[in-house]
Design a binder for these strands. Structure first.
Length: 568
RNA sequence: UGUCCGAUGGUGUAAUUGGCAACACAUCUGAUUUUGGUUCAGAAGAGUCCAGGUUCGAGCCCUGGUCGGACAACCA
């Protein structure tokens, strides 16, 4: 049986949301259409957890020939800002998704929402309450005890209408009046105990300015926005599960026969080991200057991952790999790193860079001689071609690649030992030069001219245990390399009752290396371009700080390293 | 002493009319390798939260438990 046959015969397994959608399509629900939305609140930057949701929502629409809206859920002017709106649009685009038409805003629907509130009042399903927040919350009861009804619950429609109009007109101060849905104060679901649907907020809104001084609550805006936009499947995270009865209740009171009616479906949010995902805590890291900003390469934000050197494709692949379900989950951050390496391995050009330079002189190599050696750009992809690298008598190698008293399994350079210089010659270490304090300052080696890589000679085919990367001292370019590591030392930084997540910040999450030497082909690299520094890891050109003549590279992720692992 | 949701190797996700628990990550071998990378070959690791029941047969259906999560913002 051919693989082709196999693929067509094996049905791809569906996640629970896809199952629901396929069932809906089969039943001709919503005319078989699939229309999703991604509805962030513009009160912070998007993170990898949002990426899961973005890939899910846009991906669902893609698989079922549907469309996806980007909608900003901007009903709380106290927390929301345009800076966040802009960053969110950029991040979604960067991830590779296109929303339908212009981005939508819940604030676009404030007029309609107001009308619907009036309708609810007119039909006797909403009332204005004059009580203080404290009183209202006291009457709300607890999950195990029913609430009690507000003394204003049975006001006349006329009085409610008058009061609500005056709320809108700014006759009251913040908190003096509130509009509530009249549902059931004894409901076992707290959200059904006459939830607040409109509050007074004398605060300028980033889009509607000072037009409104009353703003709808999430529950009185989200479902209606879905409905207005003809969203068929409103996919959100599990914490909104208990809101679903209210979502449905509101729709029941506004729904017009024959229109598309959205359904809310909840999935479990992403948790990543060694990572925090709370927007509030991420904001705190930024405000406390524990990181340099929302796009600090150590942040799990999309802009942080991007600046770190992640590819959009690797994030999409990650989202696909982890799947979607309803149970709590913690994904090993290694899964994310794996999808990254997998992508970069195929796409990133190999270059030579020495992070901790140690001078090495090849004593039998003529002083005036120079060679240009051909080297492949990516062994995984021949079409990426080759380049020429200058070789000369004086080179730099990695300090870690030399050991004076080397253990048996150390396949690198040591006194009297041989090693191959990648794409060049086999050299032998003859002498170790030290300063007065005993620090190694230079290595003297000899090379065997017959061992030139690719020359085809018998000597060139000789096997030596180790191969080192190197750069010509004369031609190397200086660069700054920022070596990033995970931000937290604990698997679950915010999972400890007795300790703050900040207690687990990794003091070595960033090491700045100033005098690195990189090969000359890197002279004019574009910001964000990605490379594999041979034998070290994947690095990218920092999109903000790298300039011609002042190169800055970020370490995206190290190569897998079975040597250091073995030596732990 | 409430309502809703969930429970499958270390981690995640599958098992679609009930039919030998599969895949990925992680782990460990070995081979290849001018990257201690990649690739390749292989190993180990769960009997599906527990107890009953239905059935020739249950991860899947039924009953009762246990454990975990969410919910009491004029946040979303």
């Amino acid at each position: 049986m051919s693989t082709e046959n196999k693929e067509t015969e094996e049905k791809k397994s569906l996640n629970f949301i896809e199952s629901i959608i396929e069932e809906d399509i089969k039943n001709k629900k919503n005319n078989g259409e699939v229309y999703t939305r991604f509805p962030p609140e513009p009160n912070g930057y998007l993170h990898i957890g949002h990426a899961k949701s973005i890939c899910l929502n846009f991906g669902l629409a893609q698989s079922y020939n549907g469309k996806t809206n980007l909608r900003f859920d901007d009903t709380n002017p106290e927390k929301e800002e345009v800076e966040y709106v802009d960053s969110i649009k950029e991040d979604v685009n960067w991830l590779g998704f296109q929303w339908k038409d212009e981005p939508k805003f819940t604030s676009d629907y404030f007029d309609q929402l107001y009308e619907w509130a009036v309708k609810l009042i007119n039909t006797g399903f909403a009332y204005v309450d004059d009580q203080s927040p404290e009183e209202i919350s006291k009457q709300k009861g607890t999950p195990t005890q029913p609430g009690i009804e507000s003394p204003h619950r049975n006001r006349s429609v006329e009085e409610n209408l008058d009061l609500f109009t005056r709320m809108k007109n700014g006759e009251f101060k913040n908190g003096e009046r509130i509009l509530r849905a009249k549902i059931d104060m004894a409901s076992p679901n707290m959200h059904m105990r006459d939830p607040i649907i409109y509050r007074i907020l004398h605060k300028e809104h980033h889009r509607t300015g000072n037009k409104w001084c009353i703003y709808p609550m999430y529950d009185f805006a989200h479902g209606q926005s879905d409905y207005i936009e003809s969203i068929t499947h409103s996919v959100c995270t599990l914490e909104f599960e208990v809101h679903r009865p209210l979502y449905d209740w509101i729709l029941n009171h506004l729904y017009t026969e024959g229109t598309i009616r959205p359904t809310q479906i909840e999935f479990a949010r992403l948790n990543l080991s060694y990572t925090i995902m709370s927007k509030r805590k991420l904001l705190e890291l930024v405000q406390d200057e524990l990181v340099t900003g929302w796009d600090d390469p150590r942040m799990p934000t999309i802009s942080g991952l991007r600046r770190r050197g992640f590819t959009a494709a690797s994030i999409r692949k990650f989202a696909e790999t982890i799947g979607v379900a309803k149970r709590d989950n913690v994904i090993d951050v290694a899964v994310l790193e794996h999808s990254l390496r997998d992508d970069l391995n195929k796409t990133a050009a190999r270059v030579m860079a020495v992070l901790n330079p140690l001078k090495l002189v090849i004593t039998n190599y003529p002083e005036d001689k120079e060679e240009f050696l051909s080297i492949e750009n990516n062994p995984e992809d021949e079409t990426m071609g080759t380049r020429e690298m200058p070789f000369s008598r004086e080179i730099y190698i990695e300090r870690d690649d030399f050991m004076e008293d080397a253990p048996k399994k150390f396949f690198r350079l040591a006194p009297d030992k041989e090693v191959r210089l990648k794409a060049a010659y086999i050299i032998k270490c003859e002498e170790v030069i030290k300063d007065s304090e005993g620090n190694i300052t230079e290595l003297r080696c000899t090379y065997d001219p017959d061992t030139k890589s690719g020359s085809g000679t018998e000597a060139s085919k000789r096997k030596v245990k180790g191969t080192l990367h190197w750069v010509s001292a004369k031609y190397a370019i200086d660069a700054e390399v920022r070596v990033y590591d995970r931000l937290f030392t604990d698997e679950a930084p915010d999972g400890h009752k007795d300790k703050d997540y900040k207690d687990f910040i990794n003091p070595d999450s960033l090491k700045v290396l100033k005098n690195c030497k990189v090969e000359p082909s890197l002279k004019d690299v574009e910001p964000e371009s990605k490379f594999q520094f041979q034998r070290l890891g994947y690095f990218c050109v920092d999109r903000k700080d790298s300039k011609a003549g002042n190169l800055v590279f970020n370490r995206t992720v190290p190569l897998k390293d079975s040597w250091s692992k073995k030596n732990k």
